[in-house]
Design a protein around this nucleic acid. Structure first.
Lengths: 254, 254
DNA sequence: TTAATAGTGTCTATTAGACAATATATT
DNA sequence: AATATATTGTCTAATAGACACTATTAA
């Protein structure tokens, strides 16, 4: 009874929720180091949702896997190379795309830098790193995505979307991406995939706290991660205070 | 450039890795209660892989979500009603189905009983609950799926498949399902979705230990779960020992 | 010197595990 | 009585958090 030809076929896309850490020196106070969580979005150049922001992604091609498609689109569309990819879910509400029946397989993608090496000739007309903010409100917990001008692209409270200006169901996908990011950081040390090869303990803490919502003193944070780190001979060349030893992730720990 | 019609479309299926707990009285020793982890498989009645065991599932239809498709197929094909469903991944290797280009969106499905209410007229010609065994070997950890006669359908060590007799890439999907089941039980109390409304503390322990590999004394296991349980007025009508109070899951805990 | 972060050590509170002891069912 | 599980309680080990204190850099 179940001949493969008897069934209508949807279009399938692969989209990515790309997170990265931005380590910027704050202008004020002589260079306090801020390490901020960023999300990569693309301004759409074509219908539908022309001009809106959306996740980078594109259609799956015959002969490739979903992960290959996501990787290809990230390279072509946003100049993101060699990200860590974790599949987070396939979104399938029939009405999610006004063009027709399109499923989207979403990936959580992590980069070790927020430099956009937007290769010449790429589609990335407008790929931007947006600010991700996570705060404790009295109503619970909220997540906000804002552009550099401070405009809110997505605001969610307790995991439900209050407000957004994003294409398709991408707000939903971002929320799921952040939820998964938190889980993976909490339980599988995914925080290291947001770090460069060598990093200071303090480089770890701010992103960890933004993502998990768990706040600790620098001293106790150090102890918490001590068993997962290997000390190197390198030091940070930095600012108006003691230089920090650089560490590397201890392997053999999943 | 990206017209939706420009892209070839794959067929899309929804398959489920269905787990349940079998509470059987052992024949020997006057009825020691064994609570075993079971996996639901279907013997295929058609090509390809005719006669092999496979996950229950089927093709996505236009107008439904992947979850609706999984639910429908579980009902039709295996008589499984109202399971808890968690999407675990979409499998997309181009060669995974000899019939052509078929993606499979896999779900982890949990039932509160292993009774197959195989409705008359259903496709479930041969739906069987297989034994799931998880052991610590010197090489690490192994997972085995065996039928009632003791034949091994799947054997994996440290997450890599050693041996299997299952259709398509379903061995891989089962492994991913078990991995996810473990994570969800460890970090999100998914064990309760394998339990009936009312249960004794000891009903919880054996499945929890099989799935997580964490072994504790009955006393300490009780303490570990005390904060997540609400005592009821009901008791177990059972065997050659003190009756057990029945509990219910405390709500408000994710 | 001061400000700022890096890093160590110590004490305490909370949690997880070992295990003794008691309770209550059936055979 | 013997056995098997249920349930409570106590002690101890391991872990997580608070916080004092020292170190080192540049301005």
């Amino acid at each position: 009874m179940s001949r493969i030809e008897d069934y209508a076929r949807p279009s399938v896309a692969a989209d990515a929720v790309v997170f990265g850490i931005d380590t910027a020196q704050a202008e004020s106070r002589g260079g306090l180091k801020q390490r901020k969580l960023k999300l990569l979005l693309i301004r759409r150049g074509e219908a539908p949702f022309t001009g809106s922001f959306a996740l980078p992604g594109g259609f799956l091609r015959m002969g490739e896997t979903l992960e290959q498609a996501a990787r290809r689109e990230l390279r072509e569309e946003a100049g993101v190379c060699d990200p860590k990819l974790i599949q987070i879910g396939t979104f399938s509400k029939p009405e999610r795309d006004p063009r027709g029946w399109v499923l989207s397989c979403a990936f959580l993608a992590l980069t070790r830098t927020v430099t956009l090496s937007t290769a010449a000739g790429s589609d990335a007309a407008e790929a931007c790193w947006m600010q991700v903010t996570c705060t404790e409100t009295d109503a619970g917990e909220s997540l906000a995505v804002t552009d550099d001008a401070g405009n809110t692209l997505l605001y969610a409270e307790n995991g439900s979307i209050r407000n957004h200006a994003l294409a398709f169901d991408h707000a939903e996908i971002i929320l799921e991406g952040f939820r998964r990011l938190r889980d993976e950081v909490l339980y599988h040390d995914l925080i290291f995939d947001l770090m460069p090869e060598l990093f200071a303990v303090s480089d770890l803490q701010q992103p960890y706290e933004i993502i998990t919502g768990i706040h600790t003193s620098p001293q106790n944070f150090r102890k918490k991660f001590a068993s997962k780190l290997v000390e190197t001979e390198y030091y940070n060349e930095t600012a108006a205070h003691r230089t920090a030893k650089l560490y590397r992730r201890k392997d053999g720990i999943t």
